[in-house]
Design a protein around this nucleic acid. Structure first.
Length: 251
DNA sequence: GCGACAG
DNA sequence: ATCTTGTCGC
């Protein structure tokens, strides 16, 4: 972690909380940091929104991952800024510990952003996590940034009742008798999204913002654009470091 | 002990 | 997450 990134970390976040030596410490970090989560709307008026996502290669011996942040204006949702960064994954993907794998890369991309958004949609869960510390919450607490978790499949919990088929249909996401988020059908004949508070955003606020950012696709614009951007930079980087492109038809 | 398990 | 084009269904 360089100084650019270090300067952005919220006060009181120990270095070994970001890159723990083992899963036991990682687990303790999640439990300790989860206590800082703010589940109410505590963010400035939203003028700029952002989406973040990562992309990686199937069998990359170097373990590289590319992270992108895309900033959009509100309410137009036009892309106004983008930043990306490549990082080496410290740990493999382990359900429940995604943040330790992806957040470092996201921080590097974040540090390169010229304009900072007021609210961020993250690809993954917020508090809908075994210890209430999914990647959206992780990123939010580390940067003390308002975030919303937008996951494409469940990690823990299940909808309170069968979800309606119509776009807009929603059900509380329940786990161990607690409500952790909302299951939302964003598009006809598409699997639902699993929304939850990341940091400084209420449950209702999370659902409201995701709904307001839908533009006919399953994913809300910020996250959708971030997904496209991350794939783009990865492919560009890979193409630029490949042996030799196949020769096209001459003449 | 067994099964589940974001990206 | 990613590998991958066309194809089946609404």
């Amino acid at each position: 972690m360089d100084q650019d990134v270090a300067a952005l970390i919220a006060p009181g976040i120990r270095p070994d909380w970001l890159e723990p030596p083992d899963l036991a410490v990682a687990r303790e970090a999640q439990i300790a940091l989860a206590a800082r989560v703010v589940r109410e709307d505590a963010h400035p008026p939203v003028r700029l929104l952002a989406g973040v996502d990562i992309s990686s290669q199937r069998f990359d011996p170097e373990g590289r991952i590319w992270a992108s942040v895309v900033v959009l204006d509100w309410p137009g949702l036009a892309v106004v800024a983008r930043a990306s960064a490549m990082a080496r994954a410290t740990i493999p993907y382990i359900p429940g510990y995604l943040g330790f794998r992806e957040v470092p890369a996201l921080l590097a991309a974040w540090a390169r952003l010229a304009v900072k958004p007021d609210l961020v949609l993250v690809d993954g869960h917020g508090i809908a996590h075994p210890r209430g510390f999914g990647i959206a919450t992780h990123l939010g607490v580390v940067l003390d940034l308002p975030t919303i978790g937008v996951a494409k499949s469940p990690l823990v919990g299940r909808p309170e009742a069968p979800l309606g088929e119509e776009p807009g249909a929603a059900q509380p996401l329940l786990w161990k008798g607690r409500r952790l988020g909302t299951v939302l059908r964003t598009k006809r004949r598409s699997n639902p999204l699993y929304l939850s508070t990341g940091h400084r955003v209420s449950e209702a606020g999370a659902v409201r913002w995701v709904r307001d950012c839908l533009r006919g696709y399953r994913l809300p614009e910020p996250t959708r654009q971030a997904h496209l951007a991350a794939n783009e930079v990865r492919r560009a980087a890979l193409a630029g470091s490949l042996p030799a492109p196949p020769a096209g038809p001459a003449g």
